[in-house]
Amino acid sequence: MPRERREQQILDLATAEFGDRGYAHASLADIATAAGVSKPLIYTYFGSRDGLYTACVRRAGDSLVEAVARAQAVPGAQDRALATLTGIFHALDSRTQNWRIIYDTTLPRPSAAYDQAHAYQRALNTMGSEGVADILGDASTPEDHSLLLSWWFGIVSTTIAWWRDHPGDTPADMADRCLRVFTALRQPPAAADPVQR
């Protein structure tokens, strides 16, 4: 197998392992076994455990940041929010572990892997913060902004976790599901029928 294809295979398997178990608990031996290579070959290709994780994060982060950045051109804060989710779903199609490796809380500090993941977090969070500011408008307080940004991050993370448990849904399915849920949340509750006496 050519080196480039072998590296991509190792990155696929490493992303799944790191995504499932986190940096601290992932096994390079298991990654090597699944790839049908030796651990020394992984070190030859990536230099270290940290180098392998950094390569996984870079691949995941590039596609996510690019997808979210494209969505920022959509006019209207609410349409932009849905476009952002849709972009994230397409970037994570069949790779929901990518979100987990970017936001892995077990990454050692300082390390190249942490620095790389943190750079992507900052880029994604900055775009999220700008979107939240557009939704809230000028009348909001910094605390309002902080709360809504936390909600937004929680919604995105929870939705991705739900999708991971429902892998049969396509990115389009997920976007449609989110649109239905958002629409239902925005509608006033139906008035109860008066009780007949």
Rank of each mutant, 00 (worst) to 15 (best):
A119W: 00
L11M: 09
V65R: 04
I10C: 07
R186N: 14
G36E: 05
T84V: 07
Q8R: 15
A71E: 02
A175T: 13
A69Y: 01
T106C: 05
D193K: 12
M1C: 11
Q72W: 02
F153G: 06
A139W: 08
T84E: 03
A175N: 07
V195M: 08
T33H: 15
A35E: 04
S63V: 14
V68F: 02
R6L: 15
T105L: 08
D115H: 08
G131S: 11
Y43E: 06
L107P: 12
L13M: 11
Q9M: 14
C178E: 11
Y45N: 11
D115P: 03
H166P: 00
D134F: 05
Q9N: 11
D193R: 12
A184C: 10
D134T: 10
A175Q: 09
H25K: 13
T158Q: 03
T54C: 00
W99T: 00
I88T: 12
F18W: 01
D173L: 11
H25N: 12
W151H: 09
S38E: 10
D20K: 13
S48P: 00
R122L: 12
F89G: 01
R164V: 04
D93G: 05
Q78A: 14
T159S: 13
A81L: 11
Q121P: 00
D104Q: 04
A60E: 08
I101Q: 00
L52V: 02
W162V: 06
S38G: 15
Q187S: 14
T183H: 11
L107I: 05
A29D: 15
Q78K: 13
M127D: 11
P171E: 03
G36C: 08
A113D: 06
A16S: 09
Y103D: 01
G61E: 05
K39Q: 14
L11C: 08
N98P: 01
I160K: 00
T170F: 08
A133Y: 03
A184R: 12
L136M: 05
P188N: 03
A139I: 10
Y103Q: 02
S140D: 04
D144F: 01
Q9S: 13
L136D: 06
E130R: 15
S111K: 07
A16I: 10
A14P: 02
E4G: 11
M127P: 03
G36H: 07
A175S: 15
E17N: 10
W99V: 01
